[in-house]
Nucleic acid binder design. Structure first.
Length: 505
RNA sequence: GGCCCGUUCGUCUAGGGGUUAGGACACGUCCCUUUCACGGAUGAAACACGGGUUCGAUUCCCGUACGGGCUACCA
């Protein structure tokens, strides 16, 4: 029988989780759902110096908002493999057990070097024009570790409680290859891999040891992570091998990165002229919060849809998918190898598609609080008509205000470009007759206004409709004119027209 | 610098030894519209370059260029 699929999203709580992280979580989620497996949230908080207050809560809230909730792990009810926080798992002693196993088999060793000594080594190697200075099979011979020190001296140091780290003993020249689900066979030489620290001097494991131990203990079947991990993958292969667990290595999938739309490189929160965080993120170390997709008016469904299509596609021309559909279609085989530039313009289009799919009723509820903030309150019937009228002009709910505010507010100025171009001395009498005509409309509906207007045209000849629009709303564009006038109400229209004629005459 | 990964319209991408190289966003033009949109139609726009392999390469191989990632007692 096939093993139950178990994948984990394993961020470190060192800051806000951005869209790249969400996409990694999403692909994990989709894969788990597709195979009826488990999606686990594990918190990799082994670096105590980089811990950021609120980051863990933020990760959990973000996943919830996106609708891609883990079914196991921190913030999601824990589970059979608890705890899911590495700082807590450390107290179980498991990392040390694995590290000691590696020491016992001769594949890891104690290193007593201080930061200064390491710095010195680096300088020395650089001076000697060594291409990549690192703690490895060659340089370790000149350092203070259990490979160079006499056995009784090592023993003495350990007994004295000297500070030490445990390092992986990487062979000098060995080919290491593995099969990545997305990239196929990838080959490295161990000469480029340094003797990675497995256990730090504070007793905490590094990522390299911790994630492997946890993946083993939690029976993870697929390790899905960003491309930035590719270079350290060979070290991870060696750790499994030296643990005698090479057959238990999860299937590896290294995702392509999400790149900046302009310029190059990974998306960065500072440079971006678009949101990079799902929710507003206030970093305790910085004064200004970063606005999120949520606050920018994006629907989570749209946000997820955009992300899903960055580096993956189902192979046909469709682009609009619900999370459920995505989890049916998803496969790593269809994930790209190359990075994808994020396009904020297309992101807006996606949101528009989701907005259009919503009913006028639903939109009216979403817009109501925004309108209230502007100081206006209208009944449901009005709100629904309003949304229907303005809907196809907007990409975000808040834009209902931008594209429809003149329905609520009389103009304080008139588009001068239109006025200068179109207003002439016949306009005063012309639009006065419009005023009289409007006044005579009894049942103030769009159709009746239109009929009356057409009737008027028979005697007056052409009347510039755009100019009429400007006289009533102040601006040259907007929703269907007569529909809008009907919604505004007869009194309001008459009032505005009278005012406009007074001012522009 | 070294190592690894990558490269189809401006962007996201489909495709894959023989195609008019398809779609979407954005952009242009036209139609609809007495206004504004939506919508419809249409246009411009790509296989990084050089060598192979082959009857034939955008597709396979090798180089080059370019881009990205990594190069910590960070993840």
């Amino acid at each position: 029988m096939e093993k139950r699929v178990r994948v984990r999203f394993a961020p470190s709580p060192t800051g806000g989780l951005h869209m790249g992280g969400i996409r990694t979580a999403l692909f994990n989620y989709l894969f788990a759902k597709k195979h009826g497996g488990d999606f686990i949230l594990r918190i990799e908080d082994t670096d105590q110096t980089r811990f950021v207050e609120g980051a863990e809560e933020y990760i959990i809230e973000s996943l919830k908002w996106c609708g891609i909730e883990p079914n196991e792990g921190v913030g999601f009810g824990d589970g059979r493999y608890a705890p899911y926080r590495q700082s807590e798992r450390k107290n179980l002693g498991i990392y040390k057990i694995y590290a000691n196993k590696l020491i016992a088999s001769g594949h890891a060793y104690y290193a007593f070097d201080t930061t200064e000594e390491l710095e010195e080594m680096r300088k020395r190697l650089e001076a000697a024009k060594v291409v990549s200075p690192q703690y490895n099979a060659v340089s370790r011979q000149n350092m203070r570790n259990s490979l160079t020190l006499a056995e009784d001296e090592v023993k003495k140091l350990l007994e004295q409680g000297a500070k030490y780290v445990i390092r992986l003993k990487v062979p000098r020249n060995e080919e290491i290859r593995f099969n990545d689900i997305i990239r196929g066979w990838v080959t490295f030489n161990s000469a480029q891999v340094d003797d990675k620290v497995l256990l730090k001097s504070d007793g905490m494991p590094t990522y390299h040891l911790a994630h492997i131990v946890d993946d083993i203990e939690m029976e993870i079947t697929h390790a899905v992570r960003g491309e930035e991990w590719l270079p350290s993958a060979p070290a991870h292969i060696l750790i499994y091998r030296y643990l005698g667990l090479e057959d238990q290595i999860p299937k590896l999938a290294h995702l392509p990165l999400i790149l900046n739309p302009d310029g190059n490189g990974k998306i960065s929160k500072r440079e971006a002229r678009f949101p990079v965080f799902p929710l507003s993120w206030k970093d305790p170390r910085e004064s200004m919060p970063y606005i999120g997709y949520k606050e920018s008016g994006y629907y989570p469904e749209a946000f997820i849809n955009i992300l899903a299509l960055l580096g993956w596609n189902p192979g046909n021309n469709e682009e609009l998918f619900s999370v459920e559909q995505l989890s049916q279609l998803f496969s790593f085989e269809r994930v790209h190898k190359s990075g994808a530039k994020f396009d904020p313009e297309k992101a807006k289009w996606f949101n528009q598609q989701y907005l259009r799919a919503k009913s006028d009723h639903e939109l009216s509820h979403l817009f109501k609080p925004i309108l209230k903030e502007k100081g206006y309150e209208k009944d449901d019937a009005f709100m629904i008509d309003f949304c229907k009228l303005v809907k196809d002009k907007v990409q975000f709910v808040y834009e209902f205000w931008d594209h429809g505010k003149y329905i609520f507010e009389a103009p304080t100025s008139y588009d001068q470009k239109v006025i200068t171009k179109k207003w002439n001395n016949t306009c005063g009498t012309l639009f006065n007759s419009v005023l009289i005509t409007f006044n005579s409309v009894n049942n103030w509906t769009s159709q009746n206004i239109n009929n009356a207007f057409e009737e008027l045209l028979k005697t007056t000849g052409k009347i510039d409709v755009q100019l009429l629009r400007v006289l009533i709303t102040g601006v040259a564009g907007g929703p269907q004119l007569f529909d809008m006038l009907a919604l505004m109400g007869k009194d309001e229209v008459i009032k505005r027209l009278e005012l406009a004629l007074k001012i522009n005459n």
